[in-house]
């Protein structure tokens, strides 16, 4: 089985991000493999290890520098990579068409992974658009996955912490969520091995992607300034401690 993981080269969200010309960011900061895609790569590598004759291929549409992100996926267990090089950022429709063209040129997908969203655009659309162009079923925020002979059984987490289980025919498209696994970060030997793995480069324009009838473009980017809303908890230490626990449990839902 050929397992394709669509990976995105995204800016580090912890960096100090500067907006230029009101519609793009200063890209002279670190970029990395989209964190949700790490779960996709980890899961794909796991399936590969349990499935004879399978192969994991990381595919990325991005600028030349995105090879780094492909190398990260290779260090985490992908076998080879395909980088579709372009010199601008495309919306999820064009991205899905380009990924499909590159995947079809390459082989026959048994499974396609994406992350449940990218941390830069947070569009949460690419997996659905890939499903649409291939005519494959799609599930996102996947937190559990079992591949059986001719189907995938997936648990998806919906808002409010509810989980639904679906049976999906194969091939299908899966958007990996955080709960799916703990990413296995590469070690030095993994990185050394990844340098020897092949990365094929395809020029975006050579894929002859037709303009889609509709599209999305960034009109204006504005930094979000979130005002903090501090609240003082008054009372004795015992009360304050109980109140903090209550807030963490009931409001923040982190306990």
């Amino acid at each position: 089985m050929q397992i394709y993981i669509c990976v995105k080269h995204v800016p580090d969200s912890a960096a100090h991000i500067t907006i230029l010309d009101k519609n793009r960011i200063d890209e002279s900061i670190s970029f990395l493999l989209n964190p949700y895609d790490e779960h996709a790569v980890t899961e794909a590598a796991k399936i590969k290890n349990n499935t004879p004759d399978s192969e994991v291929i990381a595919v990325c549409l991005g600028k030349n520098d995105a090879e780094k992100t492909i190398r990260s996926a290779l260090a985490m267990g992908a076998d080879r990579g395909i980088l579709i090089t372009c010199d601008k950022n495309y919306d999820s429709m064009v991205t899905a068409l380009a990924l499909k063209a590159a995947i079809e040129q390459d082989g026959t997908p048994g499974l396609i992974f994406t992350g449940k969203e990218s941390i830069d655009a947070e569009g949460m659309q690419t997996m659905f658009r890939i499903g649409a162009v291939f005519d494959f079923p799609v599930a996102t925020n996947v937190v559990k996955l079992d591949i059986e002979v001719d189907k995938a059984v997936v648990d998806c987490e919906l808002s409010g912490g509810i989980t639904n289980t679906y049976e999906m025919s194969l091939p299908c498209v899966l958007g990996a969520g955080k709960g799916l696994n703990t990413p296995r970060y590469p070690t030095f030997p993994d990185v050394v091995k990844s340098k020897k793995k092949p990365v094929q480069k395809i020029v975006f324009t050579d894929l002859n992607i037709k303009d889609s009838p509709a599209g999305m473009r960034i009109v204006e980017l504005e930094p979000l300034h979130q005002a903090r809303q501090p609240k003082e908890i008054k009372g004795d230490a015992g009360f304050v401690a109980k109140e903090i626990i209550r807030i963490l449990k009931q409001e923040a839902k982190v306990l």
Partner: peptide
């Protein structure tokens, strides 16, 4: 050699 290196710095 067993030290994991996260992608995110």
């Amino acid at each position: 050699p067993d030290l994991p290196i996260p992608n995110k710095d």
